[in-house]
């Protein structure tokens, strides 16, 4: 069964154009000009339940815009989206109970609170009874090895510890689909590996569908069974990792070649 179904999804942003310097600023007041940027242009794809998909592309390719439309943060201009059979534009709250999000660049935890208090707050957000929240906190603390710092304010934790807590908070309601937007950004290789192993574990044990965007080839290679590459808002490749590996070239080279042929080289 499909966890995510996207048909002809589009999103356009209107941005103001201004010529350089003070003259440009004055002209922009008298004759404002706007430009339409097609962030996502009629993309279609499906993700099966339990699948781990890498959704990658250079900066500005439309990855984050797509993930935000799938999670109900942004309204699409056109096309259809179904996540777990729910339309995010119509039933955002209903969908939110069943999905989890980790945005590597945006923290959702309260930094002055301890991870424990944060988990309790997230438990309340997802209407989980107190007793059950305690049980799940214990379970997550064990799985993510949080026990030694679960009562330390988040602002005093290392980046790796914070990311582990972000993951734990996103899983407190046991989501069926997990959206990860650059979850390993800024982490050292050891912590990266530990985060990857946690994602793998969740997928294997809970059959969680994972929708991952990342610039890190390691994340893609070690976690995902399929890869979609987007550029300038369009899908330029949709293939299984197995097939890509069979081509002989390394994954990094394959991605670099596709980016270069599209005129961008933004992978790390």
């Amino acid at each position: 069964m499909q966890a995510i179904k996207v048909e002809n999804l589009s999103k356009t942003f209107r941005v103001k154009r201004k010529e350089k310097g003070m003259k440009g600023s004055i002209r922009a007041i008298l004759h404002p000009q706007t430009e339409e940027i097609r962030a996502v242009e009629r993309i279609s794809f499906e993700v099966e339940e339990g699948e781990m998909l890498a959704f990658i592309g250079p900066n500005g390719a439309g990855k984050s815009t797509t993930i935000k439309m799938l999670t109900g943060i942004l309204y699409p201009d056109g096309g259809k989206v179904q996540v777990l059979g729910i339309d995010p534009t119509k039933k955002r709250k209903q969908l939110a109970y069943r999905i989890g999000t980790v945005f590597g660049q945006k923290e959702q935890l309260w930094t002055h609170l301890t991870p424990y208090d944060n988990f309790q707050f997230f438990g309340a957000i997802y209407d989980i009874p107190d007793g059950e929240v305690q049980r799940r906190i214990g379970e997550l603390a064990e799985r993510f090895e949080l026990s030694s710092f679960i009562n330390t304010p988040v602002r005093n934790l290392s980046l790796g510890q914070r990311i582990r807590c972000e993951f734990a908070a996103s899983l407190i309601h046991r989501p069926s689909v997990l959206f990860l937007d650059e979850p390993t950004i800024g982490l050292d290789p050891v912590v990266k590996e530990s985060v990857r192993s946690l994602i793998r574990q969740m997928n294997e044990e809970l059959h969680t569908t994972v929708f991952l965007t990342s610039h890190d080839v390691g994340d893609i290679e070690k976690l995902c069974s399929r890869m979609i590459i987007v550029n300038a808002g369009k899908i330029v490749l949709d293939d299984s990792m197995e097939h890509l590996h069979r081509s002989g070239s390394s994954l990094e080279n394959t991605i670099m070649e596709i980016y270069k042929s599209e005129g961008r080289t933004a992978i790390s």
Partner: peptide, 10 residues
């Protein structure tokens, strides 16, 4: 900065 509120079921 409204993203974190939009992904919550509240």
């Amino acid at each position: 900065k409204l993203d974190s509120y939009l992904v919550q079921p509240k």
